[in-house]
Design a protein around this nucleic acid. Structure first.
Length: 573
RNA sequence: GGGCCCGUAGCUCAGCCUGGAUAGAGCGUCCCCCCCCUAAGGGGAAGGCCCCGCGUUCGAAUCGCGGCGGGCCCGCCA
């Protein structure tokens, strides 16, 4: 028997039966609708409306006739998965039997449940997080970081060898402005990255007022790109100061990278590509001296790829980054995760590369997500309207820690570890459960709440499952005994379990982890109901064995699902 | 002006890609439940012109067109 396909097999069976009924009753060769997961009655359903218009008959009547035919012709014993067929309001509804539920639970016990092999032997690069140097990370950075990580984890679960890449920007005007500020205010020793932010805000205010300062910024950029020793030394200092807190945040988040790259390393190659574009007639120098790629005939705005003083832009360095990435790794898929404000930018860059004859451009995918706003308005380092990532994580951890202290007795160190798992898990879940396209208005109080539709709720259900298994003395291998009956609560759980492989696959195909969050909440809710209604530890015999299997399977599915989101389950909570 | 995205309950969001039954969750409000594997829980109630209009269809929150409201992008920021 194939793994992970109870649902697909059941649908196939129902469709086969329906097809033969429809052919016999109405002489129609192929089913004009699909069997779908039922929203209302039964488990699977088949709408008879398209058939009704084809056969020019009443859908209610058709549903009745088909149901009669199925019951008479196949009988209940003739079907492997359906135990009952009913006609309601133009639908044929199928009720799945205990065999289905048993198979579903068995499949969910597999340690690779929800995995896939389509990426086997292939590489995938996922570029995400990518904060700018010289500033602390704020809540705006979290979305790329956790979404990118989830995408990377999803690809890995499909068998890809994944390279997680953090592209750090220090070659742009932001850092140049910062350097100008440090020079202007005669700053000696720098304490930390937050102090850098203060200077950054200050110098920006001045530049806004005084145009001449802009020229000085460009002069610094020239020095940076020419490899001026003193400037490079300053860059090194900024790297050192900025990277340390970055790493602390990543450690708290549990996010790792296989690669850490700096945009300054793509300056020279970028210039070469800009010239290549010029030679190929894609770009030309405009009257003010800047080099512009002409993309308007493709319905895309033109793109400046070199400043008039010859220095590179974000666009220039991205051309080079793309080229080098495909040269070095030759990935089957290369994903970049950024705010959706950069959608056009990547369209432009990859259109250029396509025009320049690169054959890898169709393996590139940009995942854009909506912006994060604070209640006071848009996040802006420049204007100082920020909420530091560090503070958000610490608040969440503290909030979780306070709750644990009220319910479990354990050592300080253990509390800290579990509080981090719960606090950080809920933050991740809270952001990931919103669909990518949507903007998020960040609410600090809600972010540290653990009730209702939260990551903690999902974790909590997994912990309850663990407790049951522990109390039951879990040295027996879980499996469903033959011919066991499932009650309604048990069936809800097992049916939810059978939906998991599709959800997991879809999420890593679409890069939309929010669907998985939604699923995990539903699975958790089903398990909660089961937990209330079906005692496990006190039950006996086959009943106990079946319930233990359901518990173990649910735990497996939750842990697997959460792991795709970069979230783990604590031992207790 | 052009392009992309969003608009669903008081609030925060699923559902839209792939049209299907009485549009779902959570928070908040109101009511009930710890004999029992952790109440970070469960059960129930109230709460919806699915932004508006037109079209396609047996059937539209879902698809198409036209509006309205909000966000973002559109020449040397990233």
């Amino acid at each position: 028997m194939k793994k992970g396909f109870a649902l697909a097999q059941a649908i196939e069976e129902c469709e086969k039966q329906l097809a033969s009924a429809v052919k016999k009753l109405y002489g129609i060769a192929s089913l004009p609708a699909k069997v779908e997961v039922s929203k209302q009655f039964g488990d699977l359903s088949f709408p008879c409306f398209p058939l009704a218009s084809q056969a020019k008959k009443n859908p209610n009547e058709i549903a009745e006739k088909i149901t009669q035919y199925l019951n008479a012709f196949y009988g209940l014993g003739g079907k492997q998965y359906a135990e009952k067929v009913e006609a309601v309001g133009g639908y044929v509804n199928f009720f799945l039997n205990d065999g289905y539920h048993a198979q579903s639970v068995e499949e969910a016990l597999d340690k690779d449940f929800g995995g896939g092999e389509e990426g086997k032997g292939k590489k995938a690069v996922v570029e995400f997080s990518s904060p700018n140097m010289g500033k602390p990370m704020h809540v705006g950075h979290i979305r790329s970081t956790i979404l990118g990580d989830a995408i990377a984890l999803g690809l890995r679960k499909r068998g890809y060898k994944v390279i997680r890449s953090n592209y750090l920007c220090e070659a742009g005007t932001q850092v140049a402005k910062l350097l100008l500020g440090l020079k202007k205010y005669k700053v000696g020793a720098i304490k930390d990255e937050k102090q850098l932010l203060d200077y950054y805000i200050k110098i920006n205010a001045e530049i806004d007022k005084d145009e001449k300062l802009e020229k000085q910024v460009h002069a610094i950029l020239e020095k940076m790109e020419d490899g001026d020793a003193a400037t490079l030394k300053q860059l090194k200092t900024i790297r050192k100061i900025t990277l340390k807190p970055f790493k602390e945040n990543y450690a708290k988040l549990g996010v790792r990278f296989e690669e850490e790259i700096f945009d300054s390393d793509f300056v020279n190659e970028g210039k070469k590509l800009a010239l290549e574009a010029k030679e190929k007639g894609i770009a030309r120098i405009e009257k003010d001296g800047e080099l512009v790629a002409f993309l308007e005939e493709y319905g895309i705005p033109n793109l400046v790829i070199l400043r008039s003083n010859g220095t590179t832009l974000y666009s220039t360095r991205d051309l080079s980054l793309a080229d080098s990435r495909f040269r070095i790794y030759n990935p089957a898929i290369s994903v970049i995760v950024t705010g959706s404000d950069q959608l056009m930018h990547f369209k432009q860059v990859y259109k250029m590369l396509e025009l320049m004859g690169r054959d890898y451009t169709n393996r590139f995918k940009h995942v854009g997500f909506g912006l994060i706003y604070l209640e006071g308005g848009k996040l802006s380092s420049r204007k100082g309207n920020v909420f530091f990532l560090e503070d958000l994580l610490d608040d969440a951890i503290e909030s979780a820690s306070a709750q644990i202290r009220g319910r479990e007795t354990m050592g300080k160190k253990e509390i800290k570890g579990i509080a981090q798992t719960i606090g950080v898990g809920s933050i991740k879940f809270g952001f990931l459960r919103v669909s990518n396209a949507k903007n998020i208005t960040f609410n600090p109080e809600k972010a540290v709440s653990f009730e209702g539709d939260t990551g903690a709720y999902v974790q909590y259900n997994a912990v309850r499952a663990k407790n049951i298994l522990r109390k039951a003395g879990g040295n027996t291998k879980a499996s469903v005994p033959k011919n066991t009956q499932f009650n309604d609560a048990e069936r809800k759980v097992s049916f939810m379990l059978s939906l998991y492989p599709d959800v997991a696959r879809r999420v890593s195909e679409n890069f939309e982890p929010h669907a998985l969050c939604d699923y995990l909440l539903k699975l958790s809710a089903a398990f909660s109901e089961f937990y209330e209604k079906c005692p496990v530890v006190q039950s006996e015999g086959a009943e106990r064995q079946k319930r233990l299997a359901i518990v173990a399977a649910t735990l497996n599915a939750i842990e697997s699902g959460l792991s795709l989101l970069g979230i783990t389950v604590p031992k207790k909570m």
